[in-house]
């Protein structure tokens, strides 16, 4: 092990195996949100949970290199903004926004899958920011 931080070898190995699966499951939930249970919020939470798992197993430095606070904030506001724009676009043309020829098809719901993706980005990064804030708060207290 090149990195001594984090939990034991067993946890690290299991995390390495399940990490990708959890992310794929999260993406699946997001993309099929308009035809089956799930959606942007739940999918975003699942994707974030995979990152939190990574953080628990390997220590926070590894994860924060890839996804730091300011990048999280950017993604979060970008997600919200895209969601707002899609919603506003929906008001201009209602038929194209939610209408589709086929029911229960993956491209049968107009703009709603896009909304789901935007929401998942917003919720996921927002939740990660909250977790991050809590972790930092504990660290600062210990520092004092």
């Amino acid at each position: 092990m090149s990195n001594e931080k984090g939990m034991s070898l067993i946890v690290k190995t299991v995390t390495r195996l399940t990490f990708g699966l959890i992310i794929i499951y999260g993406i699946y939930i997001v993309l099929r949100g308009h035809i089956s249970p799930g959606g942007g919020f739940a999918g975003g939470v699942i994707i974030t949970l995979s990152f939190i798992l990574l953080m628990l197993a390997f220590g926070k430095d590894n994860v924060l290199k890839k996804l730091n606070q300011s990048r999280c904030l950017t993604f979060s506001s970008l997600g919200a903004l895209i969601f707002l724009f899609i919603a506003t676009a929906g008001f201009i043309n209602k038929q194209k926004a939610v209408g589709g020829k086929e029911h229960f098809a993956i491209f049968g719901a107009g703009l709603i899958p896009l909304c789901d993706i935007a929401v998942s980005v917003m919720v996921g990064t927002g939740l990660f920011l909250m977790f991050f804030a809590l972790v930092l708060l504990v660290e600062e207290k210990e520092g004092k």
């Binding site: 950017t74 979060s76 970008l78 919200a80 903004l81 707002l84 506003t88």
Partner: peptide
């Protein structure tokens, strides 16, 4: 409702 929301997200972006 949309203008202040949009402004808030643009500012934070």
């Amino acid at each position: 409702i949309t203008i202040p929301l949009c402004a808030a997200f643009l500012i934070s972006l």
